[in-house]
Simulated scan of single mutants.
Amino acid sequence: MDGAPRPRSSGGGDALARSSIIGDLRQRRVLSLLLDRSPLTERELAVRLLARERGLAPAAVSETDLDPVQTDLRHRCLPQLEAVGWIDRCPDGVVLDERPTFESVTPSPPDLRTPEDPAWDAIGALLARPYRADVVTLLANRDRDTTVADLVTALRERHTASALPEDDRSLRISLHHVDLPKLASTGLVAYDASARTATPTPRLTAFVDRIDLDN
């Protein structure tokens, strides 16, 4: 994990929306189903989604159980996916308009056909603010506690592209209140808020190696 840091984009205006989608297991399952077969009518998509969630054959799905899934698709899932440009509507149903890509944080994500893969939750956290990928990489290369102040210094030295908060104070606040707690919630780091120190977890090294994060 000693390669030179690669430039990262800021993720654009859709970064938070895409992060929310990838962090949502149902949304990942919708994308997975559309990768396997597209177009699907809204009802066909709801049937296949419910069947996958409950481990059933599509023919075993009941109409009573299907109604809330169709409602969630119609009013939440599909509008969100359409807003970020990942799906479109056609006369035959819902189609995958743009295959999701994740170059802003990793060149080697898991296969979207395995939406239950726990690595997706971590990738969702990185998508919201792509500089978190640099935070993760920096911590993975250390076997000790790292202070927020040290992370600020290291990020300023490392960064060549993706947007950081403009001044060091704003970056410290963001790391302390938002970024490190979020990364801790995914199990990648342990964060001691009182001491303002972050520590890599065993999961972190495996995650960085697996998705080729440090290239």
Results as ranks from 00 to 15, higher is better:
107 P>I: 06
193 A>M: 09
98 E>R: 14
201 T>P: 02
147 T>Q: 08
149 A>F: 13
23 G>Q: 01
91 P>W: 03
116 E>A: 14
37 R>W: 12
39 P>E: 02
46 A>T: 09
125 A>H: 03
180 L>I: 12
56 L>T: 09
186 T>V: 08
201 T>R: 07
86 W>V: 07
127 L>I: 04
213 L>I: 10
112 L>Y: 02
21 I>K: 00
48 R>F: 06
89 R>Y: 10
212 D>N: 06
12 G>I: 05
38 S>A: 06
176 H>K: 11
132 R>Y: 05
122 A>W: 00
164 L>Q: 03
136 V>R: 00
144 R>N: 13
166 E>W: 14
157 E>N: 11
28 R>E: 02
142 R>M: 11
122 A>I: 01
157 E>T: 15
209 D>M: 09
183 L>P: 13
49 L>R: 00
158 R>V: 07
142 R>A: 11
176 H>D: 12
190 A>P: 11
86 W>T: 02
81 L>N: 08
176 H>E: 15
11 G>C: 06
166 E>R: 15
173 I>D: 13
187 G>W: 01
41 T>S: 07
90 C>H: 08
159 H>I: 14
109 P>E: 12
149 A>E: 15
176 H>N: 11
114 T>E: 14
49 L>F: 02
116 E>V: 04
108 S>R: 12
50 L>E: 04
12 G>P: 07
65 D>E: 10
200 P>L: 00
208 V>F: 00
121 D>C: 09
101 T>M: 11
117 D>K: 03
179 D>I: 05
149 A>I: 15
10 S>L: 10
66 L>D: 02
56 L>H: 04
193 A>P: 12
154 A>I: 10
30 V>P: 15
202 P>M: 01
123 I>F: 00
41 T>Q: 03
199 T>S: 09
166 E>Y: 15
109 P>L: 10
168 D>I: 13
40 L>P: 11
187 G>H: 07
45 L>C: 02
183 L>I: 13
175 L>F: 07
43 R>H: 10
76 R>A: 12
22 I>C: 00
41 T>G: 05
140 A>Y: 03
146 T>F: 04
111 D>A: 14
186 T>A: 10
78 L>D: 01
169 R>S: 14
98 E>I: 07
86 W>A: 04
42 E>K: 08
6 R>E: 02
122 A>R: 01
141 N>V: 13
35 L>W: 11
3 G>P: 15
152 V>P: 02
23 G>F: 02
153 T>I: 15
9 S>T: 11
10 S>M: 07
85 G>A: 05
77 C>D: 15
124 G>A: 08
56 L>W: 05
201 T>F: 08
104 S>T: 12
13 G>Q: 09
146 T>S: 06
208 V>G: 01
142 R>H: 12
